[in-house]
């Protein structure tokens, strides 16, 4: 039961840099403090002029409440000021339904089905053209 819980305050989400894109992978139940720390970390990392995109992978997140929703929106707004684009990737259906019901449709946020797709959206061709290509069956 306690195995998945984040450690209090010590929890920090790593912000990875792949080429000119920042990649943030959220997992499990996020502590408010951790989310706020993340917001700051991303803003600082995005201040680097060579960063032109931020990808936030939500595929491992089971719940997004209005607090985390607002953190995501704030990250997007801040990075936009720094001329970088934020894409939220892999949101689960149950989370999406709940956010809409909550009234948070996050209109300013770009979204993608997966991290791979998000990187492609950000013009990730320069990173690695074969990265995460989905299996393509000829119709």
């Amino acid at each position: 039961m306690t195995g998945l819980s984040p450690s209090p305050y010590g929890g920090q989400v790593p912000v990875l840099r792949i080429g000119d894109v920042l990649l943030v992978t959220l997992q499990g139940d996020l502590h408010d403090g951790t989310a706020e720390q993340l917001q700051q970390d991303v803003s600082e990392a995005a201040a680097d002029s060579r960063v032109n995109g931020v990808v936030i992978d939500l595929s491992g997140v089971e719940i997004v409440d209005s607090f985390l929703g607002r953190v995501l929106a704030d990250i997007a707004a801040k990075t936009r000021l720094l001329a970088a684009e934020t894409v939220v990737a892999g949101m689960r259906p149950a989370v999406a339904i709940t956010l809409v019901e909550l009234g948070l449709t996050l209109p300013g946020l770009r979204t993608a089905l997966s991290t791979e797709e998000a990187l492609r959206l950000l013009g990730g061709a320069s990173i690695s053209p074969r990265y995460g290509r989905t299996r393509q069956e000829s119709p």
């Binding site: 089971e62 719940i63 409440d65 149950a94 339904i97 709940t98 909550l102």
Partner: peptide
């Protein structure tokens, strides 16, 4: 979905 809604409400 019902779980997620209830947990989110509880969080709020």
């Amino acid at each position: 979905v019902a779980q997620t809604k209830l947990v989110t409400a509880a969080s709020e």
